[in-house]
Amino acid sequence: MKFRRSERLVDMTNYMLEHPSQLVPLTFFADRYGSAKSSISEDLTIIKETFEQRGIGTLVTVPGAAGGVKYIVNINKEEAERFIGEMCEVMEKPERLLPGGYLYMTDILGDPQFVNKVGRLIASAYSGKQIDVIMTMATKGIPIAYAVANHLNVPVVIVRRDNKVTEGSTVSINYISGSSKRIQTMLLSKRSLAVGSRVLVVDDFMKAGGTINGMVSLLEEFDAVVSGIAVLIESEDTEERLVEDYISLLKLSEVDTREKKISVSAGNYFEKSKGTIY
Protein backbone atom coordinates (compact mmCIF):
# COMPACT_ATOMS: atom_id res chain seq x y z
CA MET A 1 0.00 0.00 0.00
CA LYS A 2 1.34 3.38 -1.06
CA PHE A 3 0.95 6.26 1.42
CA ARG A 4 0.50 9.85 0.41
CA ARG A 5 2.82 12.38 2.05
CA SER A 6 -0.01 13.83 4.14
CA GLU A 7 -0.78 10.35 5.48
CA ARG A 8 2.87 9.68 6.23
CA LEU A 9 3.23 12.97 8.09
CA VAL A 10 0.23 12.27 10.31
CA ASP A 11 1.29 8.72 11.10
CA MET A 12 4.96 9.59 11.63
CA THR A 13 4.05 12.46 13.94
CA ASN A 14 1.80 10.22 15.99
CA TYR A 15 4.47 7.51 16.17
CA MET A 16 7.20 9.90 17.34
CA LEU A 17 4.95 11.43 20.01
CA GLU A 18 4.11 7.95 21.31
CA HIS A 19 7.79 6.91 21.43
CA PRO A 20 9.73 9.82 22.97
CA SER A 21 13.48 9.46 23.48
CA GLN A 22 13.49 6.28 21.39
CA LEU A 23 15.88 6.00 18.46
CA VAL A 24 13.89 5.00 15.38
CA PRO A 25 15.85 3.86 12.28
CA LEU A 26 14.88 5.53 9.01
CA THR A 27 14.52 2.06 7.51
CA PHE A 28 11.62 1.46 9.91
CA PHE A 29 9.62 4.29 8.34
CA ALA A 30 10.82 3.45 4.84
CA ASP A 31 9.53 -0.11 5.19
CA ARG A 32 6.38 1.03 6.97
CA TYR A 33 5.31 3.29 4.11
CA GLY A 34 7.12 1.72 1.18
CA SER A 35 9.01 4.96 0.58
CA ALA A 36 12.60 5.92 -0.13
CA LYS A 37 14.80 7.10 2.75
CA SER A 38 15.20 10.45 1.02
CA SER A 39 11.43 10.99 1.14
CA ILE A 40 11.35 9.96 4.81
CA SER A 41 14.14 12.43 5.60
CA GLU A 42 12.18 15.23 3.95
CA ASP A 43 9.08 14.30 5.96
CA LEU A 44 11.05 14.29 9.20
CA THR A 45 12.45 17.73 8.40
CA ILE A 46 8.89 19.06 8.08
CA ILE A 47 7.89 17.45 11.39
CA LYS A 48 11.01 18.77 13.12
CA GLU A 49 10.37 22.35 11.96
CA THR A 50 6.72 22.17 13.02
CA PHE A 51 7.58 20.72 16.43
CA GLU A 52 10.09 23.47 17.09
CA GLN A 53 7.82 26.26 15.86
CA ARG A 54 4.94 25.03 18.03
CA GLY A 55 7.13 24.38 21.08
CA ILE A 56 6.32 20.67 21.09
CA GLY A 57 9.91 19.50 21.07
CA THR A 58 12.47 18.58 18.48
CA LEU A 59 13.78 15.68 16.43
CA VAL A 60 17.41 14.68 16.82
CA THR A 61 19.05 12.79 13.97
CA VAL A 62 21.78 10.27 14.77
CA PRO A 63 23.95 9.53 11.69
CA GLY A 64 25.47 6.20 10.76
CA ALA A 65 24.30 2.68 10.06
CA ALA A 66 22.99 2.29 13.61
CA GLY A 67 21.47 5.77 13.64
CA GLY A 68 18.01 7.11 13.16
CA VAL A 69 15.77 9.84 14.55
CA LYS A 70 14.68 10.56 18.09
CA TYR A 71 11.87 12.77 19.43
CA ILE A 72 12.89 14.91 22.42
CA VAL A 73 10.10 16.56 24.41
CA ASN A 74 10.32 20.30 25.06
CA ILE A 75 8.14 23.29 25.82
CA ASN A 76 8.40 26.95 24.88
CA LYS A 77 8.83 29.51 27.63
CA GLU A 78 5.58 31.34 26.90
CA GLU A 79 3.51 28.19 27.29
CA ALA A 80 5.37 27.21 30.46
CA GLU A 81 4.85 30.66 32.00
CA ARG A 82 1.15 30.61 31.13
CA PHE A 83 0.58 27.17 32.66
CA ILE A 84 2.53 27.93 35.84
CA GLY A 85 0.52 31.14 36.20
CA GLU A 86 -2.70 29.15 35.86
CA MET A 87 -1.48 26.67 38.47
CA CYS A 88 -0.79 29.52 40.91
CA GLU A 89 -4.35 30.78 40.50
CA VAL A 90 -5.78 27.30 41.05
CA MET A 91 -3.68 26.67 44.17
CA GLU A 92 -4.53 30.05 45.75
CA LYS A 93 -8.27 29.37 45.93
CA PRO A 94 -9.34 29.64 49.63
CA GLU A 95 -11.47 26.50 49.46
CA ARG A 96 -8.28 24.44 49.08
CA LEU A 97 -7.30 25.19 52.67
CA LEU A 98 -7.73 22.23 55.01
CA PRO A 99 -7.51 22.06 58.83
CA GLY A 100 -3.89 22.20 59.97
CA GLY A 101 -2.82 24.39 57.06
CA TYR A 102 -2.78 21.57 54.51
CA LEU A 103 -3.85 22.10 50.90
CA TYR A 104 -6.38 19.95 49.07
CA MET A 105 -4.69 18.69 45.89
CA THR A 106 -6.44 15.41 45.14
CA ASP A 107 -8.63 16.92 42.43
CA ILE A 108 -5.78 18.39 40.38
CA LEU A 109 -3.55 15.34 40.83
CA GLY A 110 -6.46 13.28 39.55
CA ASP A 111 -6.89 15.46 36.45
CA PRO A 112 -5.04 13.68 33.60
CA GLN A 113 -4.65 16.84 31.49
CA PHE A 114 -3.24 18.83 34.42
CA VAL A 115 -0.86 16.04 35.44
CA ASN A 116 0.24 15.50 31.84
CA LYS A 117 1.22 19.18 31.53
CA VAL A 118 3.12 19.03 34.81
CA GLY A 119 4.92 15.94 33.55
CA ARG A 120 5.80 17.68 30.30
CA LEU A 121 7.22 20.69 32.15
CA ILE A 122 9.46 18.54 34.31
CA ALA A 123 10.44 16.24 31.44
CA SER A 124 11.41 19.25 29.31
CA ALA A 125 13.79 20.44 32.02
CA TYR A 126 15.60 17.09 32.00
CA SER A 127 15.25 16.09 28.34
CA GLY A 128 18.91 16.87 27.76
CA LYS A 129 20.09 14.53 30.53
CA GLN A 130 20.49 10.79 30.63
CA ILE A 131 17.58 9.46 32.70
CA ASP A 132 17.03 5.72 33.16
CA VAL A 133 14.21 5.72 35.70
CA ILE A 134 11.86 7.98 37.69
CA MET A 135 11.66 7.49 41.45
CA THR A 136 8.93 8.69 43.82
CA MET A 137 7.37 7.86 47.19
CA ALA A 138 4.08 5.95 47.48
CA THR A 139 2.13 9.18 47.95
CA LYS A 140 0.37 11.77 45.79
CA GLY A 141 3.52 12.19 43.72
CA ILE A 142 2.86 8.93 41.86
CA PRO A 143 0.66 10.48 39.09
CA ILE A 144 3.31 13.14 38.46
CA ALA A 145 6.08 10.55 38.32
CA TYR A 146 4.21 8.51 35.72
CA ALA A 147 3.48 11.62 33.66
CA VAL A 148 7.17 12.54 33.60
CA ALA A 149 8.11 8.95 32.79
CA ASN A 150 5.66 8.93 29.88
CA HIS A 151 7.32 11.98 28.30
CA LEU A 152 10.84 10.60 28.84
CA ASN A 153 9.87 7.01 27.98
CA VAL A 154 11.43 5.47 31.10
CA PRO A 155 10.05 3.25 33.90
CA VAL A 156 8.93 4.32 37.39
CA VAL A 157 10.05 2.86 40.72
CA ILE A 158 8.04 3.53 43.88
CA VAL A 159 9.60 3.77 47.32
CA ARG A 160 7.35 2.51 50.13
CA ARG A 161 7.18 2.84 53.89
CA ASP A 162 6.14 -0.77 54.49
CA ASN A 163 7.01 -4.09 52.91
CA LYS A 164 4.77 -5.67 50.24
CA VAL A 165 4.94 -9.39 49.63
CA THR A 166 4.72 -8.77 45.88
CA GLU A 167 7.91 -6.68 45.98
CA GLY A 168 10.20 -9.56 46.93
CA SER A 169 13.33 -8.84 48.94
CA THR A 170 13.93 -5.17 49.69
CA VAL A 171 16.57 -2.66 50.75
CA SER A 172 15.49 -0.38 53.60
CA ILE A 173 16.98 2.64 55.33
CA ASN A 174 16.06 4.90 58.23
CA TYR A 175 15.88 8.62 57.62
CA ILE A 176 14.96 11.75 59.56
CA SER A 177 11.83 13.55 58.44
CA GLY A 178 12.69 17.16 57.72
CA SER A 179 9.56 18.62 59.31
CA SER A 180 8.78 16.35 62.26
CA LYS A 181 12.41 15.29 62.93
CA ARG A 182 11.13 11.76 63.47
CA ILE A 183 13.05 8.70 62.37
CA GLN A 184 11.13 6.90 59.64
CA THR A 185 11.76 3.96 57.33
CA MET A 186 11.60 3.67 53.55
CA LEU A 187 12.32 0.67 51.38
CA LEU A 188 12.66 -0.36 47.75
CA SER A 189 12.59 -3.73 46.03
CA LYS A 190 16.06 -5.03 45.13
CA ARG A 191 14.81 -5.76 41.61
CA SER A 192 13.70 -2.18 41.00
CA LEU A 193 17.04 -0.66 40.07
CA ALA A 194 20.08 -1.82 38.17
CA VAL A 195 23.49 -0.81 39.46
CA GLY A 196 24.51 2.57 38.10
CA SER A 197 20.99 3.64 37.12
CA ARG A 198 20.55 7.37 36.50
CA VAL A 199 17.52 8.43 38.49
CA LEU A 200 15.23 11.45 38.44
CA VAL A 201 13.53 11.86 41.84
CA VAL A 202 10.02 13.35 41.61
CA ASP A 203 7.59 14.39 44.38
CA ASP A 204 4.45 16.46 44.73
CA PHE A 205 5.44 18.58 47.76
CA MET A 206 8.65 19.43 49.55
CA LYS A 207 9.01 21.27 52.84
CA ALA A 208 12.40 20.68 54.41
CA GLY A 209 13.23 17.89 51.99
CA GLY A 210 13.62 15.04 54.48
CA THR A 211 11.76 12.50 52.36
CA ILE A 212 13.66 13.39 49.20
CA ASN A 213 16.93 13.34 51.11
CA GLY A 214 15.99 9.87 52.31
CA MET A 215 15.40 8.70 48.73
CA VAL A 216 18.81 10.05 47.76
CA SER A 217 20.37 8.04 50.59
CA LEU A 218 18.43 4.96 49.48
CA LEU A 219 19.82 5.34 45.96
CA GLU A 220 23.33 5.15 47.37
CA GLU A 221 22.54 1.62 48.53
CA PHE A 222 21.91 0.72 44.88
CA ASP A 223 25.02 2.53 43.60
CA ALA A 224 22.60 4.63 41.54
CA VAL A 225 23.18 8.20 40.35
CA VAL A 226 20.84 11.09 41.12
CA SER A 227 20.37 12.85 37.77
CA GLY A 228 17.89 15.38 39.13
CA ILE A 229 15.23 16.23 41.69
CA ALA A 230 11.90 17.84 40.76
CA VAL A 231 8.86 18.80 42.85
CA LEU A 232 5.50 20.30 42.00
CA ILE A 233 5.41 22.60 45.05
CA GLU A 234 8.08 23.65 47.50
CA SER A 235 7.36 25.38 50.79
CA GLU A 236 9.17 28.65 51.39
CA ASP A 237 8.46 28.46 55.13
CA THR A 238 11.27 26.21 56.27
CA GLU A 239 14.26 26.90 58.50
CA GLU A 240 16.56 24.26 57.07
CA ARG A 241 16.47 22.85 53.55
CA LEU A 242 18.00 19.38 53.37
CA VAL A 243 18.02 19.39 49.56
CA GLU A 244 19.81 22.05 47.55
CA ASP A 245 19.87 21.15 43.87
CA TYR A 246 16.26 20.73 42.71
CA ILE A 247 13.60 22.13 40.39
CA SER A 248 10.23 23.34 41.64
CA LEU A 249 7.26 24.50 39.56
CA LEU A 250 5.49 26.36 42.36
CA LYS A 251 6.46 27.96 45.66
CA LEU A 252 4.09 28.08 48.62
CA SER A 253 5.03 31.24 50.51
CA GLU A 254 2.12 31.78 52.90
CA VAL A 255 -0.83 29.90 54.41
CA ASP A 256 -3.04 32.00 56.67
CA THR A 257 -5.69 29.72 58.17
CA ARG A 258 -7.44 32.59 59.97
CA GLU A 259 -7.82 34.77 56.88
CA LYS A 260 -8.05 31.73 54.60
CA LYS A 261 -5.33 33.12 52.40
CA ILE A 262 -2.91 31.08 50.31
CA SER A 263 0.03 32.70 48.53
CA VAL A 264 1.61 30.73 45.69
CA SER A 265 4.16 31.93 43.14
CA ALA A 266 6.37 30.44 40.45
CA GLY A 267 9.15 28.20 41.75
CA ASN A 268 12.72 28.11 40.47
CA TYR A 269 11.78 26.25 37.28
CA PHE A 270 12.88 28.94 34.82
CA GLU A 271 16.09 29.63 36.69
CA LYS A 272 17.11 25.97 36.95
CA SER A 273 15.93 24.84 33.52
CA LYS A 274 17.46 27.76 31.66
CA GLY A 275 18.80 26.53 28.34
CA THR A 276 16.55 23.47 28.14
CA ILE A 277 13.33 25.31 27.24
CA TYR A 278 12.97 27.91 24.52
Rank of each mutant, 00 (worst) to 15 (best):
M206R: 07
I46K: 15
N150A: 15
K274N: 07
A66W: 06
R161N: 11
I46Q: 02
R241A: 11
Q184L: 15
V199L: 04
P94A: 03
I233F: 10
V255Q: 07
C88I: 05
F51L: 10
S248Y: 06
I212H: 08
S21P: 00
S273W: 08
I84M: 08
G209V: 02
L44P: 05
V60K: 09
K272Q: 13
N163Y: 14
E240G: 05
K181V: 00
M105F: 13
A138Y: 05
L218C: 01
R160C: 04
E220L: 02
L17N: 05
R258L: 09
V133L: 12
L9K: 12
E81H: 15
K260T: 08
R161E: 04
M1L: 04
G119M: 04
M12Y: 01
G128R: 07
V255E: 06
E220S: 05
A138S: 12
E18G: 13
I176F: 00
T106I: 04
G128A: 11
E236D: 12
A224S: 13
L17R: 08
V154E: 02
E271L: 09
E18R: 13
N116A: 12
V199R: 08
S189T: 10
V243D: 11
I183P: 02
L103F: 03
P155M: 00
N76S: 04
V195S: 14
D256N: 15
S39F: 06
K48P: 02
R5T: 04
K272Y: 11
D11I: 10
V231Q: 09
K77T: 12
M1R: 03
R198M: 03
S192G: 07
D203S: 09
N74W: 00
D43K: 04
E254S: 12
L97M: 03
N174V: 01
N174F: 07
S41V: 11
K93I: 01
L218I: 00
F83E: 07
Y269N: 05
G34A: 06
L249C: 09
T58G: 09
V10Q: 05
E89N: 13
V73H: 03
K274I: 07
